[in-house]
Design a binder for these strands. Structure first.
Lengths: 126, 126
DNA sequence: TTTGGTATTGCAACTCAGTTGTAGTAAATT
DNA sequence: AATTTACTACAACTGAGTTGCAATACCAAA
């Protein structure tokens, strides 16, 4: 289910992530690209870009989906405890370049770990 | 916004958590108690029980809300990295009694951390 | 134990992020 | 250029969670 064709939609979306390492919510992208792309297309292309390892996704504190081209992970290895930081003041989300160690748990197989840290970001931290 | 009255709805919901320390999704409760309680009531009572520190809530990998009366945390202290484990096979979620250390991040204030671990639970682990 | 204030409940209608079906369109292959 | 097939847009849908409001149940004071 990877990307097969280099379509306009794909290029438009890739351009959104080219300049920043910050995470963007799917909704924000849909609103921002409203004149260019259809909502369904945005969801489907993001999905494929994730399958292709270009982006990775996660849910924020409200269950909203965010995507990011992370600067730290190799995108073949973000099944690790890859932490994301969401600012409680401005809502901004980004990838945090720290390693959170998830210990093994007896009689369980740990496959993926998601860590969402909430607090005040660099801009909102007084 | 805590609980003021010991109503039937409150007792019915408390009973659901009395016998287990496993987490239950709001939806599961709504379906299970369909004959007894209204959907809205379930959501509202759960909300208050959380405010009162009786339950705590978190979102699973699908953005679905779960509640649990955790065995480990004091419920005045689950603002820590309190990990939850969701089984990828059976979907069951429970509280894991391990401490995941979230380091401080320069120029940021960490308020809450959520850790969701996904894998195979004790029952599904072969 | 009645009365009355008010927290709580049930219902219906709503919100809104995300999904699905489908007919039409655009990209690659020949 | 023709053909194949992936992709896109649109509209309609899904489903978890919310909101407004009238009716009801709880509690306390009389």
């Amino acid at each position: 289910m990877g990307i097969i064709r280099k379509t306009q939609s794909v290029e438009v979306l890739l351009a959104e992530f080219k300049s920043t390492t910050e995470a963007v919510s799917a909704i924000a992208l849909i609103k921002r690209l409203d004149s260019k792309l259809n909502k369904t297309t945005v969801y489907r292309v993001l999905d494929k870009l994730e399958d292709d390892g270009v982006l990775h996704s996660f849910l924020d504190k409200n269950g909203i989906k965010w995507y990011a081209k992370c600067n730290a992970c190799t995108c073949s290895k973000h099944f690790d405890a890859h932490p994301h930081f969401q600012c409680l003041s401005c809502g901004k989300v980004d990838c945090v370049v720290i390693d959170v160690h998830i210990p093994n748990i007896p009689n369980r197989e740990v496959v993926v770990s998601q860590v969402l840290i909430q607090g005040k970001c660099e801009d909102c931290f007084v």
